[in-house]
Simulated scan of single mutants.
Amino acid sequence: MKKIRMQETPALDITTFLNLMVVLIPFLLISAVFSRVTIMELSVPTSSGGSAIDTPNFAIEVIVRKAGFEIANGSSVEAAIPKKEGQYDMEMLGEMLLRLKAQYPEKEDATVLMEPDIEYDYLIQIMDAVRGTEIMAEEGEEVRKVVLFPDISIGDAP
């Protein structure tokens, strides 16, 4: 008589796979937090040709130079804001843009023009200042956010 032996199936060694998972799962969880992407829509400045007769021919341009800001109306410089203690004067820029918004409340677009070799961080700060500012309310110490010119175009300074 022939004996039929029951063969045991060999045990599956998954130790290496578990070691990989112990390292891979925390890495993926940590890196997932930093993979957020923020998109801001910008446009390229266009020439002001073919505008309607009723529309005022006024373009708000913030020109960023190494010496400071210049605020122009599309053809001539309206105001110059020099650097204060080696830093760009964002408060004065906000005040000037707030005055322009009071004069032209329907205006929604502005152009930021930068000279070469100016740090990218300044571009972001200036775009934030052009987009909106915070002002103190008259009745108390409440800070109010005011939207100035949310449609921003960027380009190279002349």
Rank of each mutant, 00 (worst) to 15 (best):
A11Y: 10
M92K: 15
F34D: 05
P116A: 12
P10Y: 03
E134P: 00
L42I: 10
K66G: 03
I154K: 00
R131G: 15
L18S: 04
N57V: 06
L97H: 06
I135S: 08
S35Y: 09
L123F: 12
S76K: 13
K2C: 14
L98H: 10
I53R: 14
I25H: 11
A32L: 14
V37K: 08
I126C: 01
T16H: 05
G49E: 13
L24N: 00
K3D: 04
I39H: 06
S153Y: 01
P82Q: 07
A67D: 11
T38I: 15
K107N: 08
T46I: 01
T133W: 00
Q87F: 14
M127K: 01
R131A: 15
T15M: 08
F69R: 02
G132S: 09
L29A: 13
T55V: 05
Y120G: 06
T111I: 12
T9Y: 07
T38Y: 15
F34C: 01
G140A: 04
K2V: 14
T15W: 02
E61P: 02
M40G: 04
D89W: 08
A80I: 12
L97V: 06
D117V: 07
M1S: 08
S76C: 07
F34I: 02
E95R: 11
E95S: 11
A79E: 07
L12G: 01
